[in-house]
């Protein structure tokens, strides 16, 4: 490759090696001898050294906005887990999702598995909505951290992040279908569903809150979208479990 002011490419092409001490002693000495008599190559060498020194002096570049909020929203265990599927427990199989009919029939005789799953979903979604409603109606400022569900499970306090338009209909349909079959479920399944949906709701809330603070952040927007997809997958999985149990 040729460069401007490059009169002796056989020498200048190795000037960086010379500068960085990458030549063997014999070649290095030959370079020194040539530089002693060639002003052109000396000029190139000085230019390269100037570039090198200025580059080494370049410092950090602080972001013009605080990026921590977006990072924090993602690394908080529930959010990170929901996004990556790391902390969401697998749903029980259809067989295991069935409550112990023998011991509960006297109290819950007419409820299908669909209804049982719906109960836990309603519990989670309903609690979040109730929390939201109460918070929005309350004249006093309640810390927006968490509310306790009726089963003693900690429920996330939602921030009413609207789902993406392409998911909204299916999410709503799944939630509604499950809610219509309201009932009870095996306690272990209830616990798993509650925990998983709580994790996902918390992830949605955290991501949405971070996005509200930084609306132009494409990473946060993508993250929120991913968490909504995760919620949809989970509701679909719950519905499949119920269908196969019926």
């Amino acid at each position: 490759m040729t460069y401007k002011d490059n009169e002796h490419p056989e020498w200048t092409d190795r000037l960086s090696d010379f500068l960085d001490g990458g030549l063997d002693p014999e070649t290095h000495a030959a370079f020194e001898a040539h530089l002693g008599e060639c002003g052109s190559c000396r000029g190139v060498l000085e230019g390269l050294d100037e570039v090198r020194r200025r580059a080494a002096a370049l410092g950090p570049i602080e972001p013009t906005r605080d990026l921590w909020a977006g990072i924090a929203a993602t690394i908080r265990a529930p959010a990170a887990g929901a996004a990556e599927g790391a902390t969401v427990i697998a749903l029980p199989t259809a067989e295991r999702a069935r409550p112990d009919i023998g011991s509960r029939r006297s109290h819950r005789v007419s409820l299908s598995s669909m209804q049982l799953v719906a109960a836990s979903l309603v519990l989670v979604v309903g609690s979040s909505l109730a929390t939201l409603t109460l918070r929005s109606q309350s004249p006093t400022s309640t810390p927006p951290v968490a509310a306790t569900g009726s089963e003693g499970v900690i429920m996330p306090a939602g921030t009413a992040a609207p789902p993406p338009a392409d998911l909204a209909l299916e999410l709503s349909s799944l939630e509604q279908a499950l809610a219509e079959a309201r009932g009870v479920l095996d306690p272990n399944t209830v616990r798993i569903l509650e925990r998983n949906l709580s994790v996902i709701e918390q992830a949605i809330e955290d991501s949405h809150r971070a996005l509200m603070q930084d609306p132009e952040n494409a990473f946060l927007a993508e993250h929120l979208d991913r968490v909504y997809h995760r919620k949809l997958e989970y509701l679909r999985e719950a519905a499949r479990v119920v269908e196969s149990a019926d």
């Binding site: 960086s16 190139v44 100037e50 570039v51």
Partner: peptide, 15 residues
């Protein structure tokens, strides 16, 4: 090494 030299030469010309 050759890419570094190329970069330095181009930087020198730009600056």
């Amino acid at each position: 090494k050759s890419q570094l030299h190329r970069a330095r030469m181009l930087m020198r010309e730009q600056l």
